[in-house]
Simulated assay, not measured.
Amino acid sequence: MKRSIDKAAMVIVTYKRQELLANLLGSILNLTVAPWRIVVVDNENSEQTRRLVSEFSDKVDGLWGTTVVDGDGQEHRVVYAPQETNGGGAGGYSAGVGKAYQLGARWFWVMDDDVAVEPRGLELLAKWTDRFQVIQGSRLDYDGGPFYWQYHFIVPMGIPDPVAPSAFDSSGFRPMNTMCFEGGFFSRQVVEKIGLPDPRFFIYWDDTIYGYLASKVTRAVEVEDVVMRRTREIGNWDMGGIRQLNSTSDVNRYHIMRNRGYMARYFMAHGDYRPLVFALGTLATAAKEIIRLLAVDRGHIMTGIPKIIQGWVDSRKLLHDSDWKPMAPLKN
């Protein structure tokens, strides 16, 4: 018997990638377990995306019918959430999780527009919900091979563990202290305790810190069940086996460095900040980005290095921002 999940909401963040979004929405129609809600956050606020989501909503209602709300009411499963400004992935997830929470969701399955869900994705996640409140399903890469994700975060340095083992043991899960919003799955209780994702990150490290915070209040795990696949080909440097260094943009490079300031502030708030060790992590992060420029993004060396430096400088400003406060819990 397929196990359902009480009020599971999918939260999708999209921006100017209607073709990828259409592919994801099409894959959702093949799910063996119907989601309670599907919240599509449109950071572009595009009429084209609005039409695409409206057509998808009609298909969903025809396939699964409307969804139950508190009392005897029925509403459309699909909720379109256009944003007045582009808040990046971080702002989109904060708005999307907030909307789903407001609607009454009890579980949140978050993802970008450049993935497709596996038919049994939600069904496979459901089997872990009686044991864990934060679950990261496994993914396939765009070429159909396994996608390795760095599930262990070295907190004192503020960097992913580059040598964490890739194989699962017989339990089918392993502990993690981070999260990836490309398929992260978490409960309402966790959101109530740690608050919404922090929109100030704009892009990068927002999901890492959300997973770090979640691991402070519950046991977070990655499971071996494959629940989705990536659909966008990204240039990369194959580092042997399933590990690789992917191409990125100068905008990402800037935020990779700048947002370490936010990361440090969260570590300070939870007693995990070690200045000298964290500084070593910042040096390692900058070195990794320079290696990425030399190995994968050689055409961006002249623009990329200034972005790394500027992000580093701005991260120092965040460390000394007297007005900064962490995201507040939704329930005390």
Rank of each mutant, 00 (worst) to 15 (best):
D6F: 12
A8H: 05
M10I: 15
I12H: 04
T14M: 08
K16F: 04
V41S: 05
R50I: 12
R51C: 13
E55W: 07
V60N: 01
L63F: 07
W64S: 00
G65R: 00
G65L: 05
G73P: 02
H76G: 13
Y80K: 08
T85Y: 07
A90S: 08
G92V: 04
G92R: 03
Y93F: 05
L103W: 03
W109L: 07
V110A: 02
D112E: 05
D113C: 02
D113H: 00
D114P: 00
A116W: 05
W128H: 04
R131D: 06
I135N: 01
S138M: 12
S138T: 13
R139I: 11
G145M: 12
Y151V: 11
I154C: 07
V155G: 06
S166Y: 07
D169Y: 00
F173D: 03
M176R: 01
M176K: 06
M176W: 05
T178I: 11
C180Y: 14
E182C: 12
G183V: 07
G184H: 02
S187M: 04
Y204I: 15
W205Y: 06
D207M: 01
T218A: 08
R219Q: 15
A220C: 15
E222S: 13
V223I: 15
V226D: 12
V227E: 11
I234K: 04
D238R: 09
D238I: 06
G241W: 00
S247W: 05
S247F: 06
S249D: 12
V251A: 14
N252G: 15
N252S: 15
M257I: 13
R260K: 10
R260T: 09
G271K: 09
P275Y: 07
A279T: 11
T285A: 13
E289G: 11
R292Q: 15
D297F: 01
R298L: 13
G299K: 11
G304L: 02
P306E: 03
Q310R: 10
G311R: 00
W312N: 03
D314Y: 08
D323F: 09
K331G: 12
